[in-house]
């Protein structure tokens, strides 16, 4: 690959990377919020919401993310509204990954011993006070490694949003290949850029995990 091609490609890909990062951050926030709410409802919400939360997690865990994205993008237009690809991407990834993150939070909530709930009840804390002040802070340590694992998978899933036409990193790579060819070099470069984002995250979690096991 000539240095001129490398230079132009990199500038296009870096623009795509910025879009990928924005999309990732927004979808991480959205999916964490959705996942937390679904986990709370499924673990101890009223009976009706428990059923809905279960249906939600099972539905999205059982369908491909691309279908979710297409449904949101085309579904909204079908009802006569316009949605831009970024918004469709954020909503689609949030809803899809939220189903997995709900399960991560649920296993964390259930790992906290029952005695923590009992003593809180005796002390006069309400169910919600117990959840936010006693249970959730203890859940954090348990769920962090699987949660970050889910975030990594979300970051990589953003590449699928190129299928509905969003100009992110993957889309940038395709555009270059369409014009100048060299798919091996260009897609290799794209892969390296995803790796540069994901690798430090997974390393950070591994270090955190190791430190925790040393402490225990």
């Amino acid at each position: 690959m000539s240095s001129e091609l490398l230079y132009t490609s990199l500038s296009i890909l870096l623009q795509g990377l910025v879009a990928t990062l924005l999309l990732s951050v927004a979808a991480i926030a959205g999916s964490t919020l959705i996942g937390l709410v679904a986990a709370v409802l499924r673990s101890f919400g009223p009976a009706g919401t428990r059923y809905i939360a279960t249906l939600y997690t099972e539905l999205f865990r059982g369908t491909p993310v691309l279908i979710t994205l297409l449904f949101i993008y085309f579904g909204v237009s079908y009802f006569g509204y316009a949605i831009d690809v970024f918004a469709a991407g954020v909503v689609g990834l949030s809803v899809y990954q939220g189903a997995y993150i709900a399960e991560v939070f649920r296993s964390g909530i259930e790992a906290v011993p029952k005695g923590q709930w009992e003593v809180s009840q005796i002390l006069g804390l309400s169910k919600w006070q117990t959840f936010f002040s006693v249970i959730l802070p203890q859940t954090g340590k348990i769920v962090l490694p699987p949660l970050v694992g889910q975030y990594l998978s979300l970051i990589k899933d953003t590449s699928i949003v190129s299928m509905i036409g969003m100009s992110e990193l993957m889309h940038g790579g395709q555009a270059i290949v369409d014009r100048v060819g060299k798919p091996v070099e260009i897609y290799g470069l794209v892969a390296v850029l995803y790796f540069i984002v994901c690798f430090p995250l997974s390393q950070w979690v591994r270090r955190h995990d190791r430190r925790r096991s040393v402490l225990q």
Binding site: P113, G115, L123, L125, S126, V134, Q138
Partner: peptide, 23 residues
Amino acid sequence: FQQFNLFPHKNALGNVTLALIKA
């Protein structure tokens, strides 16, 4: 309780003050 059921993420003072402040 037999198993103490202290809040592991709070120090001794935080264990005692939590219910006083929240409840």
